[in-house]
Design a protein around this nucleic acid. Sequence first.
DNA 1: TCTTTTTGCGCAATCGTTTGCGCAATTCTA
DNA 2: TAGAATTGCGCAAACGATTGCGCAAAAAGA
Lengths: 346, 346
Amino acid sequence: MNQKNSLQSIAGRVGVSVTTVSRVLSGQAEKYRISQKTVALVREEAARSHYTPNLLAQGLRTQQTRTIGVTVPGIENPFFSTLASIVINLLQNKGYHTLLADSLESPREEEQILRMFEARQVDGIVAVPVARQPDLHEQIARQIPLVLIDRYFDHTVLPYVCNDNVVGARMAVEYLLDRGRRRILAVQGVHDALPNRERVRGLRSVLEGRPDASFDIVGEAFSVEDGYASTLHAFRPGRDSGTADSPLAYDAVFAFSSTLLLGTINALRELGIRVPGDISLISYDNNGFLDFMDPPVTHIAQPMRESCQLAVDTLLGLIASRHSGAPDPAPLQRLIPPKLIIRSSC
Amino acid sequence: MNQKNSLQSIAGRVGVSVTTVSRVLSGQAEKYRISQKTVALVREEAARSHYTPNLLAQGLRTQQTRTIGVTVPGIENPFFSTLASIVINLLQNKGYHTLLADSLESPREEEQILRMFEARQVDGIVAVPVARQPDLHEQIARQIPLVLIDRYFDHTVLPYVCNDNVVGARMAVEYLLDRGRRRILAVQGVHDALPNRERVRGLRSVLEGRPDASFDIVGEAFSVEDGYASTLHAFRPGRDSGTADSPLAYDAVFAFSSTLLLGTINALRELGIRVPGDISLISYDNNGFLDFMDPPVTHIAQPMRESCQLAVDTLLGLIASRHSGAPDPAPLQRLIPPKLIIRSSC
DNA sequence: TCTTTTTGCGCAATCGTTTGCGCAATTCTA
DNA sequence: TAGAATTGCGCAAACGATTGCGCAAAAAGA
């Protein structure tokens, strides 16, 4: 610490009161009729001493911090780091800064994080929730504007912007059926996660109406390792070993995320199974690299940027309306339809 | 806002002073000999009312926020989002939270961010710098512990942990030469960025001593689009069109990052150039997906996790030592050697 | 010359914590 | 039973900013 640098110190050096310095530096000089001369002196001294306002004090006094808390269930997962990136950039453009935290798929960790956001007096929260019940989020949302993204709760009053996972999964499965595939292996992630549950629901809703088709669902986590292990296990010899003309247990694999996909590809390669020769491959998620794989992978793409934009706009809207004393508008709850991007893996 | 919830309100409801409540809740009850009964009453009321301390006020008073500022030059770049992810998780384990900001490769934006960190009284800063000169960073570092990562400044007193890019680039080029390649195209990123300059230096230092080899360097930014455009342009007909037995201008491409690599692959594919048949391909950066490409890509891997760990440890060490009043230790300045990971793209 | 108006600025409370110092009431010692 | 020691807690001043209210001096009006 060189020397302290506050309104007080500037006031002392210039020879005016703290009030005056505050008014000058917050651009309220004319409103309070501070003379040109004083304004100049204060400005000069502030610049000379490299004055930086203390945002803690400012936040304490004004009750706003221009900080948004963002929590995701696994920041090392490219899907969430992309989501966080986009949100951060959008917020930065609006003059907000971001506290980014990782709940690691743990509701307990998530609770810590939300309480921390509350304690830090953030102006708003963007959350990919991991809790099963909305109670905590709803409680927090009574104090602080909050929007959910990518995951939501059934029957909640909280605003959310999510991918329509039921529809996405149906699209994927129907496409596989159209291509003549009948024995489908789904590689899923975290069972409890809502997107995962809905993808399973979408898949079931199509396949259970098709007596000519069969399927299995394996997997535990949204990771490359888990995708690899589950796929390997599902194809291991000794299991149901397919039909006469096809020695494989499945003729299509549907990976529920692009991380899982990487694991699956690794496993298939190790097993000597060719894509799309021996088997079809389709994935959820749109990572840039899908088009560069061997072969390029057909996938269900979700419009990330638009979803993030919508979530951020909603949040900022909530902040503005709460600040103006108006009652909260009806919560925006949106399911964004995904798109099927056809490549050459089926 | 339901009702306010502060030490004051609890004190009022329990019938003791703010001081006492503060002492109980900060675990200093016995140090100040608060009676068991009072402790119980206060604890109960705090729990009942869901008390959350106001960290702004606390930070203002105690001069520490348990917040670390992290700035990177492009959070949407997988390299930096991975770096940020790792740092965030490491910090979270140590009880610190992270303000993450994106300088977008702009020194002006970077200055804003650093000043913002200062204003928010962060306890420390992890920066991937974009400025050409260290002045601002050094000025800030006099107030707040700061460590650089991935990029650094020549002749600076600031601590840093970086990849040894000169060595990495030499390894890549020497490997290409070993495989018999002689006409090398380097696809670079942001010219001013230190890692880029050093990779160029490493490359030159090898190739300029080899009269039998030639090279070109193209590219402007670390993006997929730029990699695509630069590669396409470099191979376009009308340019130097190679030797008699090889119609291509180059027999190897060295992409300076995995984003550039994706662009390059796209371009080569469009041009009908086969890897590794017609040309060798090598990349800097170790993204998980490199092994899953067509073909798996040989690359120079940097030990990200170890570097981040070292940077974070250094930073926390600085914070601790500054807090204890000791003078800063000699700055840790480390260049981490990268590794050559051989796959089948050469 | 004596009010009224305008100009230019400061007082002091407030936001929610933490902490050095001190002071009653109780218990112990002699 | 008086004095000393201990127990249990509160006062008030910080931390650095914002803001409603008000007040003196100068200018304008009568």
